[in-house]
């Protein structure tokens, strides 16, 4: 718990309406529980299991490196300094699907690539999420009439968040990522296995 750098001696449990930034932080969600635990000298932590596990999950999603087409260039732009994906704790792109829990399907999924994408997804360990980026991955996009393009990646793997655009702007990516975080937050941690909803 020593890594929490907020000076907790100044924090009182919020009774009145929170005003300062610190009070507001104190008033919300998990950080409150953590700080309360800190006050009790780090011995006890009160939280729901869902809240705690989901906090761990959404705070540091590790995507697998798999660019498919044009949208992958925007993926690079999102990770670079200007848009800075590191803010979401997910700049660690993994070259191996075994170490990743998020997959960006960024680009056109052709018929020939489809089994590979599917295999990549199957190689990832649970829990795992998929964000489908760009019209191509969503529906086939501009290539929907083509003979060699799969009409939407959700035909082969389940998708959590769809981001439209051709290519989506980096801001849209970030919005999509925030949506996924919301989704993870609101899920029961066992939802992926059908335990609770």
């Amino acid at each position: 718990m020593d890594s929490v750098t907020i000076d907790t001696t100044k924090i009182k449990p919020a009774k009145k309406k929170p005003e300062t930034a610190l009070e507001k932080l104190n008033d919300t969600g998990l950080i409150n529980t953590l700080l309360a635990a800190r006050e009790r000298e780090g011995m006890i932590l009160f939280s729901t299991v869902d809240q705690f596990i989901n906090w761990g999950r959404f705070s540091s999603l590790w995507p697998v490196t798999s660019g498919l087409a044009c949208c992958a260039i925007e993926m690079m732009a999102v990770t670079m300094a200007h848009h800075d994906l590191a803010r979401f704790g997910m700049e660690a792109f993994r070259a191996s699907p075994r170490q990743a829990d998020l997959m960006f399907v960024a680009g056109t999924v052709t018929k020939r690539m489809a089994p590979r994408v599917k295999q990549l997804y199957e190689m990832m360990a649970e829990p795992k999420w998929v964000i489908s980026i760009g019209s191509c991955a969503n529906t086939g996009g501009p290539y929907i009439e083509s003979y060699s393009v799969l009409k939407g990646v959700d035909n082969i793997i389940p998708v959590d968040v769809y981001v439209p655009g051709c290519p989506p702007r980096p801001e849209a990516w970030l919005y999509g990522i925030i949506q996924l975080r919301e989704k993870i937050k609101s899920q029961g941690y066992g939802a992926k296995w059908g335990l609770n909803k």
Binding site: K111, A114, P115, R116, Y147, N155, I156, P158
Partner: peptide
């Protein structure tokens, strides 16, 4: 036409996508 992957990683083409599609 759909493509699936064989044991050795080579492509197999067929009009039946049942073991690829959900």
């Amino acid at each position: 036409q759909f493509v699936t992957m064989g044991e050795d990683g080579e492509d197999i083409v067929s009009t039946d996508g049942s073991n690829l599609l959900r």
